[in-house]
Computed example of a mutant assay.
Amino acid sequence: MGKEMPSMSQPLFILQNAASGKHRIREVHAALERVLGGARREYQLTLVRHRRELGNAVRSVLQRATEREGAIVVAGGDGTINTVANAVLPTGLPFGVLPQGTFNYFGRSHGIPEDTDAAVRLLLSAKPQPVQVGLVNDRVILVNASLGLYPKLLEDRETAKREFGRSRVVAYLSGLIGLLRERNALQLQMETRGRRILMKTPTLFIGNNRLQMESLGMREAPDIGTGRMVALALRPVGRMSLLKLALFGALGSLGSAREVLSFGTDALTVRHEGRDAHPIKLAVDGEILQLQPPLRFEVSSQPLYLLKPLPAHCDAQ
């Protein structure tokens, strides 16, 4: 559908997450008027002021975009982008992003600028190109999914952001503080293509973003985008060892740590031994979910058609 249409002629249906702050709202609106208005490119902007409104807004925008054979664009962080991508993926409509989050791994990995004006200008020339999407129990994974320690660290990070503001420094510091707290280990049973792994671990992390995995120094990072994701789990360690591993990650050498088990996979089933009757808390692209086990991680057979620069001008995922 959308992948066959020239992006320069499609109307753009833009969803913006107002939670990014008043400054960001004005910044996006000004860029849209200046760039798209100046180029006489048709667009419609929908502002979502509360998280609970997002579902209805996405359905309304999808209907209009389908009727007009347009493209969906979302302005927000990786969590908001993920929510909209869940709805867009089955439709095959072109999908664009204006990164507005803290880390913006999804946009950065596909050559989409973090500068708002530059990202809007890209929409005038970008072409829909297929990008790999991961799934967990049919929920989209664009960047990563995790259970155990990492979801709790994300909750701590969001609390710190509300108190001290949204920045990468606040995110890093809140994560380090969180590592010093006592955590319970998970007893997991993992199966991938006939291989069974029984492991006690504080966290299991599934990566679908090559840029993030390269930044951690994972040797399997090149697998991403070739029909595989990267799974990594930490062997049981003390709090000081967790801090050491955090330092390894910050220095881009986590993949060389003895305490890390990692492997590439296109399909992984995870059970929490003794707790399969209870939902499992996990983080998906920065959003906390509760899913009923077993957790089935896999690469989607359907790609997302992302409006991005041609491959010669950006790194592959």
Rank of each mutant, 00 (worst) to 15 (best):
P6E: 13
P6A: 08
P6H: 11
P6D: 15
S7P: 06
S7H: 11
M8P: 05
M8C: 15
M8F: 14
M8E: 13
S9I: 13
S9Q: 12
S9W: 13
Q10I: 14
Q10T: 09
Q10K: 11
P11N: 13
L12C: 03
F13Y: 14
F13N: 01
Q16C: 08
Q16G: 04
A18D: 11
A19R: 11
A19F: 08
S20R: 10
S20E: 13
S20G: 14
G21N: 10
H23T: 14
H23S: 13
H23I: 15
H23Q: 13
H23C: 03
H23R: 13
H23G: 15
R24W: 02
R24S: 11
R24H: 10
I25Y: 10
I25G: 05
E27W: 03
E27T: 12
V28M: 00
A30N: 11
A30W: 09
A30Q: 12
A30F: 12
A31S: 15
L32C: 09
L32V: 14
L32R: 06
L32Q: 08
E33W: 07
R34C: 11
R34D: 15
R34Y: 11
R34H: 13
V35W: 05
L36G: 08
L36P: 12
A39D: 14
R40S: 15
R40I: 09
R40L: 11
R41N: 12
E42G: 05
Y43F: 14
Q44S: 12
Q44D: 04
Q44V: 07
L45D: 09
T46C: 08
T46G: 02
L47F: 02
L47K: 05
L47G: 01
L47Y: 05
V48C: 10
V48P: 04
V48A: 04
V48E: 06
R49M: 10
R49I: 05
H50Y: 10
R51C: 07
R52I: 12
L54P: 06
L54A: 10
L54R: 08
G55F: 12
G55C: 10
A57T: 09
V58E: 03
R59L: 14
R59Y: 06
S60F: 03
V61N: 00
R64T: 06
R64P: 00
R64F: 01
R64K: 15
R64H: 08
T66Q: 09
T66E: 12
T66F: 00
E67W: 02
E67N: 05
E67P: 01
E67I: 06
R68Y: 03
R68I: 02
E69W: 04
G70W: 01
G70N: 04
A71Y: 00
A71L: 02
I72N: 01
V73N: 00
V73G: 02
V74R: 00
D78N: 06
G79M: 03
T80Y: 05
I81W: 02
N82T: 08
V84M: 05
A85S: 07
N86H: 09
N86A: 06
V88P: 02
V88W: 01
